[in-house]
Design a protein around this nucleic acid. Sequence first.
DNA 1: TTGACATGCAAGTATCTGCTTGCCTATTGT
DNA 2: ACAATAGGCAAGCAGATACTTGCATGTCAA
Lengths: 95, 95
Amino acid sequence: MVGDVYKALADPTRRAILDELQDRSGQTLFELCVRLTDKGFTSTRQAISQHLAVLAEAGLVVLRRQGRYTFIDLDTSPLQQIYQRWRVGPCESDT
Amino acid sequence: MVGDVYKALADPTRRAILDELQDRSGQTLFELCVRLTDKGFTSTRQAISQHLAVLAEAGLVVLRRQGRYTFIDLDTSPLQQIYQRWRVGPCESDT
DNA sequence: TTGACATGCAAGTATCTGCTTGCCTATTGT
DNA sequence: ACAATAGGCAAGCAGATACTTGCATGTCAA
């Protein structure tokens, strides 16, 4: 069920979607499309929709249909597995 | 110069390489190949070498040629940018 | 009910990616 | 010097991936 989180992050548009949702979770698909367009992304609604499917597969996003809208919620918890896999030595970095 | 860190992580074999290096940094390519084979990976030397090029592009690995050996060092610092981009609420996770 | 709106679904296409194959270079030991 | 070792380089191929296009579905307002 948890389709590869890493592959989900591999696409710049998908990362922009996560950024956008972190800024404002619970947007509708339409709203998200507008905002991404404003930010310079040229993706069509269908493209975004497909990206969302990938993100949802990875558990990074939760799609909740309500009436004729699909609300999109961010869920960063799948990222924990990445954060825990490779430790970044915070002490040995500088100086 | 910093080729996409995210794309570098997108491949399972490359992640296994990072795991292996975290376990023991400074291996030679040959050594790494043997160890990956032992762990069930079927990649050839050339394949591994190409993966290393991608990882090096992303800065996750440093290749240091010495004599006829190429030593491979892990560098996890590029991962920080990921860890800082999306915050995982550590408090709201359990209970 | 009817039309506009928000979205889903699916096939086709072009590019990217990982891998193989085959050969070349450089270093070390005898 | 010569052979074995460790690795590099590059072209070709097959599968994956992102995107487009066209149409279908479902919901809300008038």
